[in-house]
Design a protein around this nucleic acid. Structure first.
Lengths: 188, 188
DNA sequence: TTTTTTATTGTACAGTTGTTCAATAAAAAT
DNA sequence: ATTTTTATTGAACAACTGTACAATAAAAAA
């Protein structure tokens, strides 16, 4: 009745540790499955019992990171149940702060050769955060799924630009810019 | 003084044709370099002389597609030099129409296992289109690079959602929604 | 046309990949 | 404590990868 076999836990821990270790030396795309298994002292066949790619192993980390994103995003809501976007204070936006906190990971996530899968994890996470705190709109003709996708990816767009500029903007500048964009009417 | 050696042209054409041919049978990630070279009757070493991955070969197609995007985007501007966003008519938005036109390609581009590189090509293309036709803003504190990134990726967000729903919305619906989002103030 | 340049080929090699299978060892269940 | 279940191992295989190098053939330059 235990959650998972102890052997599986040990194997995965060893593989996780080995991958993190290798990431200090080289980029994800240069790391081989054989290499990870040698370092983890795990048979290569065992790797394939749990994963099919290195990316699947790395995905397990990244899910922990997006979980932290959800936590920090929801933090300002812990005391008030509804926050109107017009009352949005730059300091309540925690997303850019979160990205900066895990910068080394996001540098991997956004690199050219990495598969789209991580992008989707981030996209889905931000999308659902926006969807959940969206107040029932008066505007009936708005497709909420589409609009959340629009807004979530807009924010990721800023992050991509930030990444492209090697994270040279500081967090409060980005927060201020975001608030401006949200309150901006198209015909300004 | 010719642009490129005829042998190179022939080799690349053969590789292009072979890849397109194989894409009818299987997904990009299942295609091997050896396979392409066998079909193209090109030595495998020759492949590495021009590309380092299959993705680099595929990128050459995709660049032609984003060039078409730029053309169709700029089409409404051929007669007027400036279009104010407030005058934006849904029919002038050609992006969704373009995506639908090349749907099979974009299904590849947006698939989970494909590297981020194609996403960036699309992102950069749309970003620069937005940046070029942006009228000098009265609002001085807007960072145009960031704002273009924000807006460009917002649109891609809608496309991603569209893709996720297996392209079930029709183009004019998306155009109408986009116009709504652009004209929406945050505190509605 | 002849010479020069250079793209392509064929071969080879060590390493990785993905898969299979019987043997083993470790954990869970009784 | 013993039995049952199952995760891990090791070995083996064919195919792919990335790289190197000398030989060849094709194109460009003279």
């Amino acid at each position: 009745m235990t959650r998972t076999d102890l052997r599986i836990v040990k194997t995965k821990e060893a593989l996780h540790a080995a991958l993190l270790d290798l990431l200090n030396d080289k980029v994800l795309e240069d790391i081989t499955i054989s290499e990870i298994c040698r370092k983890a002292k795990v048979n290569r066949g065992t790797f394939y019992l749990h994963y099919s790619q290195i990316e699947d192993l790395f995905e397990e980390y990244f899910k922990e990171i997006t979980a932290d994103l959800a936590r920090s995003y929801q933090e300002p809501y812990r005391h008030v149940s509804v926050l109107k976007p017009s009352e949005l204070d730059p300091s309540t936006i925690q997303i850019f702060h979160h990205i900066e906190k895990y910068k080394p990971f996001y540098k991997i996530i956004f690199s050219k050769k990495v598969p789209m899968m991580y992008y989707y994890l981030l996209f889905e996470e931000i999308k659902s955060l926006l969807l959940h705190d969206k107040i029932a709109s008066i505007e009936e003709e708005i497709n909420h799924d589409l609009y959340s996708a629009y807004q979530a990816n807009a924010i990721i767009g800023m992050i991509l630009e930030w990444y492209r500029q090697d994270f040279s903007y500081n967090v409060s500048y980005l927060n201020n810019q975001l608030v401006k964009y949200i309150n901006l009417k198209a015909d300004l």
